[in-house]
Amino acid sequence: MAGVSGCIKYSMFIFNFLFWLCGILILGAAIWIRVNKDGEEILNPGNSVTSPYISVNILIAVGSIVMILGFLGCCGAVRESRCLLLLFFIGLLLILLLQVAAGVLGATFRSDSERILNETFYENVKLLSETDKEAQAFQEALATFQEKYKCCGLVNGAADWGKNFQQNFKSCECTSSTDSCVVYEGKNVYKQPCISFIKETVAKHFLIVIGIAFGLVFIEVLGLVFSMVLYCQIGSK
């Protein structure tokens, strides 16, 4: 133990244990967002490659890697292994650099993302008036969303349903007589289209991802400092 500070060693162990717990929390939060299907089928009825939740899939991978790194850091601190500490440092540094790159790219292409999102909405409106299998799956997803958020149609209200309105009006039927209702083809339905609610859902998930990422940056910088100090102390024994 000569040359190695017990305080640094056990602080490193406690930090990495907390870091490992952070990995579990990140993984759990990302899986919750991924499993929560609100709006995903509506934005992306057929092609998972262009899913707006691809960042959540990346976060699941990050959470898994953080758990592994936390374990490596704990073992490196307890066993005073320079090899494990170096692996921990390199892995943590790579994650940090990837997060910075992802943040820069996200800020750069934000306007493009919003444009693509709006284009997706307007393109998917066509599915409401069609009858093929893909259209029916999309219509079922929107019907569920309409019931939950008390809205009707995707962009233009009930008119988006076209000739399929009479078969699908139940999910957006408005039972009250307030200003939130409107009469369309003899049916009392919600006036508000679902586009704003879907955007709010996506924005909420995006904020959760951003919050986790920024919180992780602070923890990662501390991990880099702790691991390098302990690595140098072990080397000077």
Rank of each mutant, 00 (worst) to 15 (best):
M1R: 14
M12S: 15
N16K: 10
N16L: 05
N16G: 03
N16R: 03
F19A: 06
G23V: 04
I33C: 04
N36E: 07
N36L: 06
I42E: 08
I42W: 11
N44E: 13
P45Y: 09
G46H: 14
V49F: 13
T50W: 15
T50C: 15
T50D: 15
S51I: 12
P52Y: 12
P52G: 15
S55N: 13
L59Y: 09
L59T: 13
S64Y: 04
C75A: 15
G76V: 02
A77R: 05
A77T: 08
A77Y: 03
S81C: 06
S81M: 02
R82K: 08
C83I: 06
L85T: 00
L85K: 00
F88P: 00
I90W: 00
G91S: 02
L94N: 01
I95T: 03
L97Y: 05
Q99M: 08
A101V: 13
F109D: 11
R110H: 15
S113V: 11
R115C: 05
Y122W: 12
E123H: 15
N124W: 12
T131Q: 11
T131A: 10
D132L: 01
A135K: 06
Q136P: 09
A137R: 13
Q139L: 00
A141C: 13
T144F: 15
F145D: 03
Q146H: 04
Q146E: 03
L154V: 01
N156Q: 04
A159M: 10
D160A: 02
K163F: 12
K163D: 11
K163W: 06
F169K: 08
S171L: 00
E173R: 10
E173P: 06
T175D: 09
T175Q: 04
S176Y: 05
S176E: 08
S176N: 13
S177M: 10
S177C: 07
S177R: 09
S177N: 14
T178A: 06
D179Q: 12
Y184K: 10
G186D: 02
K187G: 08
N188D: 04
V189I: 08
V189C: 09
Q192E: 11
I195H: 12
A203C: 07
H205N: 14
F206S: 10
F206E: 15
L216A: 07
F218V: 09
F218T: 11
F218W: 09
I219S: 11
E220A: 04
E220C: 07
L222R: 06
G223C: 09
L224P: 00
L224D: 07
F226D: 01
V229R: 13
V229K: 09
L230P: 02
Q233T: 01
G235D: 00
